[in-house]
Every structure is written in C-alpha cells, then in structure tokens.
Computed example of a mutant assay.
Amino acid sequence: MYSKKDLMACLDQMGIEKEGTLLVHSSYKSIGEVDGRADTVLDALSDYMADGLLVLPTHTWRYISKDNPVFDVNKSPSNVGVLTELFRNRENTIRSEHPTHSVAAMGKEADAFTAGEYKHETPCARESVWGRIVDRQAQILLIGVDLTRNTFIHGIEEWLDIPDRMTDNYEALFSVLNSGEKVRVPSRRHCGLSWSEHFWKVNDLLIEEGAMKTGRFGDAETRVVDAQLTTALLTELLEKNPELFTENKPLEPEWRCYFRNKRMN
C-alpha cells in the first residue's frame, strides 16, 4: 500500500519540477492501493507542487451540448475521472470557465492561468490554458494513461488548423461564471472520429527525441511530457504531414529517421 510519502518520492524520481507547472491526466485505479485513497493521491500532488502550479482537467464535453447547453463552473461535474472531480471541489482550487474544456488549478498564478476561458470559441485555443501550458514550459504527467488521453495534442492540431478536426458551425453554449453571471459562449466543437485514439503512434518518437520519458507512480506506468518540446516536434511533423493522426496505424519509419538525422546533424 502506497503512502503520500511514497507517491511524492515517485514524482521526485521522475524529475517533476516542484516550482514549475504540472498538468495531470490520470487513471486513479492504475495507481494501486493507496493509504487514504484518492485524497492521498491529491495530497501528494498538491504538496509536491506547493511552490508551483498544479492543473487537472475538469472537462464537461461529454454532456454539455446544444441539448444541455449550460455549464456552471461551480456545479457541473467533471467527466474525466474521480481525481479531477475531487480536485475541483478542493479548497484553494480555481476552475476555469470554458463550457466544455475547463481545468482546475491550484498554486502559483492560478488566477491568471485560468482567467477569461469563457471568451474562447474553440476547445483548445492558443490563447487559452492549453497555449499557456506551452508558454509556461509545463510538464504533462500521464498517470496510467497514454497519449490518447493527452488533450494538449488536440490543441496543437487546432493551432495548425488541421482539416476535419473542428465543426464549422457554432453551438449556443453558456457558462455560469464564478461571479454568478451567465454568459453566452458560441462554441465550435471537436468533430469527426475520435482522432485522439491515434495519438499513440508518436509515443516512441517523443521518447527518442527527448520530449517524453517514462516512470512509475505507484503501480501506474507513467509518462512525463515536455509541453514545449512536444509542441515543436509535432508542429514540424504535422506541417509536413497534416494527415498524421488521420490513420490509426504506426508512424512510418521515415519520420523517425528524419528527426534522428536532423538531431545528429
């Protein structure tokens, strides 16, 4: 059974920057038995990042839609896991006000990080928290989940305007803000197939190029993604091959050779 101290040691062994910004996607069940259960996991993350900024997704895209259009920042539950739902309700967390792709943040500059999200008409705008992840040179921790659960890559595709990723039309959504004000948020949505299910194909490339490393958090196989390096790498790859994540098959060897040769030269 893992203690808070054990889990904090795992973070240290993986080189998580205590004074940096850490975005966490997670599968709670993958961690194994923890003394104090999910609350201890959050205590470990929060205490470790006490001098930095801890961010967890609190998305509601699964049920906020044109048929159920009102997101309430204080009441709408997260649809992306038990840790995210517990975290958004913790004291001293601040939840952003985007109707479908909110996050909750705790720590250094959490107010500024989450501010104004209801002003964005797309899920992962470059000016949103997803772009701020890059600007802050954040690390992304994937606990017991792989790259297919890394919302951040949706952002990279969105910023490059990859075809068939976003609806042309807008849904009439609303956000009830922390102030209690209800505001209209006309929103384009992710569309088509579940393109994120194809993100796995760059796993080995990211490791080879130093943009990702692996470790353990409790029992969970865990990935640590460098947001800035990953953005640079996938931007170059997607500019050369916009159909990269359209097909669910392994990355062609030529692309790994391309980056290997570039690195060596």
Rank of each mutant, 00 (worst) to 15 (best):
S3D: 06
K4L: 04
K5P: 04
L7P: 13
L11P: 03
G15T: 04
G15Y: 09
E17Q: 10
E17A: 15
K18M: 06
T21M: 11
G36M: 12
R37C: 05
R37Y: 14
L42D: 05
A50F: 06
L53Y: 03
T58H: 08
H59W: 12
D67E: 13
D67P: 05
P69N: 02
D72I: 11
P77Q: 10
G81P: 06
L86Q: 15
N89W: 08
I94N: 01
H98Q: 04
P99N: 08
P99Y: 09
A104S: 15
T114G: 04
E117Y: 10
H120N: 14
P123G: 07
C124P: 00
E127F: 07
W130C: 01
G131N: 06
G131R: 12
R149H: 15
R149L: 08
G155S: 13
E158L: 06
Y170R: 10
E171S: 12
S175V: 11
V183L: 08
R188N: 08
S194Q: 13
W200M: 01
W200H: 07
E209H: 05
A211S: 10
M212K: 14
T214F: 00
E221W: 08
V225T: 03
V225I: 15
Q228V: 05
A232M: 14
T235W: 00
E236W: 09
T246K: 07
